[in-house]
Write a protein that binds this DNA or RNA. Structure first.
Length: 297
DNA sequence: TCCCAGGGAGGAT
DNA sequence: ATCCTCCATGGG
């Protein structure tokens, strides 16, 4: 929930839980999610914030969360399969870390676009601001409220000014263009779900502001194409370090290596390598020493 | 004041 | 193909 995947903004806490709300099958539902720390029987405990939720809706929420947190992914067999690989050194510190898959692909696309050359904190702020400005407000019975992410139609009609107020910066025009392409029918996110990885990626890169990395983020976190392995600055640093003795590689080569080596699990491998690279950045990539020499002219 | 943030576009070699 | 620089904006 806090790992900065561009499926959606990080979930927010209340007490020891995390909460969210959405309209599921036409009904407003809020839910709190509690982690269970029993390593023998790992589970997720969910409390619905509405006393009056039918059984069918409750079941839909369950299905939704299983998809969102990809609870069907078999992590133990992933760990086991690559136990003897160099990547296994990244498993220790992040046991249980999972990929997520967006409930709302359009939101994930905009998250991915906003994440470029930005920080998790900043693009999260931007997305929440866009929700608050343009999205329908949901009021829960316990007093909490939340906003849906707006539709492509709503965002396409948004002014650059308001988007810039959300601190989207130079990405505002990208957001507008992507929304426009969707309502024009030039871009169909659900159709991309069925496309081959290479074709889908090529199509996505027709959107201005969407390059190889952002396209892969959307394919992975938005559509659940686990073959996609976004190569950002950290992956670009860590993969040559861990697997090739520090040899210089292009980003394309790194991405190709991850897909060939990890196949359907390239995206998950990327997730572990990413967090490992970041947490050990000081020791793995010591900052270059800088010298400033003053001259007399 | 400077550098950096889960990059990408446009232009110059 | 590979290399620059700029892009908004906040935070360290």
């Amino acid at each position: 929930m806090q790992s900065g995947q561009t499926s959606e903004p990080c979930w927010q806490r209340i007490g020891g839980a995390y909460w969210d709300a959405d309209v599921i099958e036409g009904k407003l539902v809020g839910y709190e999610v509690y982690p269970c720390s029993d390593a023998e029987k790992p589970s997720l405990n969910v409390r619905l914030i509405d006393k009056d939720v039918g059984e069918a809706t409750a079941k839909s929420v369950k299905t939704r969360l299983i998809e969102l947190f990809r609870l069907r992914d078999d992590l133990p067999s992933f760990y086991e399969r690559y136990r003897a690989e160099k990547i296994s050194q990244t498993f220790k510190g992040f046991s249980g870390l999972r990929l997520m898959k967006a409930s709302n692909p359009f939101e994930s696309l905009i998250c991915s676009i906003c994440s470029q050359h930005s920080s998790v904190e900043q693009w999260n702020r931007t997305i929440r601001c866009i929700r608050a400005f343009f999205g329908e407000r949901l009021r829960l019975p316990n007093g909490l409220s939340s906003h849906l992410f707006p539709s492509p139609e709503t965002l396409a009609a948004a002014s650059v000014r308001k988007l810039e107020h959300c601190q989207a910066g130079y990405r505002s025009k990208y957001i507008l263009k992507a929304s426009q392409m969707i309502i024009d029918g030039r871009l169909d996110l659900e159709q991309l779900r069925k496309s081959r990885y290479e074709n889908a990626k090529e199509k996505l890169m027709e959107i201005p502001g969407v390059g190889p990395k952002v396209a892969d983020c959307f394919l992975l976190y938005g559509l659940g194409q686990t073959r996609a392995a976004p190569v950002d600055i950290w992956i670009h640093r860590i993969v040559p370090k861990v697997y090739f003795g520090g040899t210089k590689m292009t980003k394309d080569e790194v991405g190709k290596f991850l897909r060939e080596r990890f196949g359907e699990w390239a995206g998950l491998a990327q997730l572990y390598l990413f967090h490992y690279g970041r947490i050990h950045s000081r020791t793995l990539f010591p900052p270059a020493t800088r010298l400033t020499i003053k001259t007399n002219v």
